[in-house]
Simulated scan of single mutants.
Amino acid sequence: MKDETYMDAIKLLQDASATPENSVEFLELYRAANIKMFKDNLKTVDISIDEIDALNIIYISGTKGKGSVSAFCERILRANGLKTGMFSSPHLMEICERIRINGLPLSCEDFSKYFFDVYNKLNDIQNRFSFLTVMACHVFMQEKVDAVIMEEGAGGTYDCTNVIRFPTVTGINLIDFDHMEMFGDTLGKIAWHKAGICKPGRPAFTVTQSKEAVDVILARPKELHVIIQLPITFPTIDN
């Protein structure tokens, strides 16, 4: 078997078939089966949900500010002596940027190694983002990190990252118009998806939001038996 290189990994990701996100088929599959397929993929690569829960995850959703908040959290944890893992998207220059250990992107060599660890068990890339999420979980366990900062990929409620059952804390950043063909054409509809990452018994926080978004952000966690913490002063912003 020929050596498996970084460029081989990139080509496989680029060549992976993808149904257009605005298609009826994609939306139905996303809502009905995304999390189930992700769980099946985790099982195939010998990762259990219990192992995911043990990663001490800071779980972040929202439309704007996810990357900045993730970076702040990562730096604070690292400054306090913890070994960190971070998964975010999209990347700016290289896809390696999406998976970081102690603030540094994976090297091309490490990306290739971990990519093929996962790919050679799955033998398929059904969805680029969910594949990279499985890969990130594999990386974090192999690297034995103390804590993980995980961004949801799209939406929240039906996103593959929402297999997380016991995040250390969840945070909802600013809600704005985002993937409206998937999540709805109002801030309230979008907020319903973004707030779906909240988990019973786990602390949850948000930032100053529009009135339309905050009404849902207060109501949705209540449905999930979560009390969400608002800023000490919480003026809403105009839509």
Rank of each mutant, 00 (worst) to 15 (best):
F129H: 11
I47Q: 09
A9W: 04
H138K: 13
G67Q: 02
R78I: 00
S70G: 14
K113P: 00
D15F: 00
Y114D: 09
G81M: 06
C73S: 13
G85M: 10
A219P: 00
D46H: 15
D176W: 06
V24Q: 12
H193Y: 15
I95E: 05
I190S: 03
N34D: 08
Y119N: 04
C160W: 02
A191H: 07
I227T: 14
T63V: 03
S107P: 08
K39E: 15
V24I: 12
Y158Q: 06
A9H: 06
L174Y: 10
P235C: 07
G156L: 05
L132E: 11
R202F: 03
D8M: 12
V24F: 10
W192R: 13
G201T: 07
L29P: 00
V148H: 02
N56D: 14
Y59V: 00
D176I: 04
V45L: 04
F111C: 03
R75H: 10
A79R: 13
I57S: 09
V69A: 08
K66D: 01
H193E: 12
P167A: 06
R202W: 02
W192M: 12
L55K: 04
I125N: 04
I227L: 09
C160N: 10
T63M: 02
W192V: 11
T161I: 09
L122P: 05
N41P: 00
Q209V: 06
H91R: 08
S89G: 08
K199R: 15
M180V: 13
G67V: 01
C160H: 02
K211M: 10
E4L: 15
Q209N: 09
T19R: 14
N123R: 12
S88L: 13
D178H: 03
N22C: 05
E97C: 06
A213K: 05
R78D: 02
A195Y: 07
P203T: 13
D185G: 07
S68K: 04
F72N: 05
I172N: 11
A191T: 09
T208R: 08
R78P: 00
Q14P: 00
F140Y: 13
A219R: 13
F26S: 10
K66F: 03
G103V: 04
V216D: 04
C160V: 14
H225G: 08
V207G: 05
R78G: 12
F38T: 04
G67I: 01
H91A: 09
V45N: 05
V207Y: 06
